[in-house]
């Protein structure tokens, strides 16, 4: 069931997008992936896609226009969007960013490692999470 759902990746770094997509491929995740380069774009995308909302959002924090925290604040006020689990995927080890994110109800907070193999492990963990965890599904 979870295989059909789509993944929304909010990320501005192209190498990171490549890394994540490659990691998906390596661990054979076939779900459709949508990419938005910043929060604003992601918000537009979500509001446009009313009917086919993604099953999970992977969110970077450092982004132009609208950063990850601002994006989280936006979707928190939206009755529908706030149901989508969000996993933060960032370089920031700042305590403030962690606290802020969890206050805004994120499902996970991951640091992007430099080493690719470690990156793959992280994605595997996220995958494990969304395969095992029940996620609310739209009727």
């Amino acid at each position: 069931m979870n295989e059909k759902i789509s993944i929304l990746l909010v990320e501005d770094d192209h190498v990171d997008i490549m890394t994540i997509k490659r990691a998906f491929k390596d661990i054979k995740i076939t779900n459709p992936v949508n990419v938005c380069e910043n929060g604003l774009e992601a918000l537009d995308f979500l509001r446009d896609q009313q009917k086919h909302l993604p099953g999970i959002i992977l969110l970077d924090l450092n982004m132009p226009k609208m950063n990850g925290i601002e994006f989280l604040q936006e979707i928190k006020d939206d009755e529908q969007l706030k149901l989508i689990p969000v996993v933060v995927l960032t370089t920031s080890k700042e305590e403030q960013d962690k606290v802020e994110s969890f206050k805004l109800g994120v499902a996970g907070y991951m640091i992007k490692p430099v080493d690719y193999m470690q990156f793959v492990e992280i994605i595997r963990t996220i995958h494990l999470y969304w395969t095992l965890s029940e996620i609310p599904v739209e009727d």
Binding site: D13, V15, D16, M18, T19, R22, N62, T91, K112, P113, V114, D115, Y116, M117, F119
Partner: peptide
Amino acid sequence: LKAPLRAISQLSYW
């Protein structure tokens, strides 16, 4: 600095 570093690391690995 970390972001490009990561890119370099991953790209060279690939």
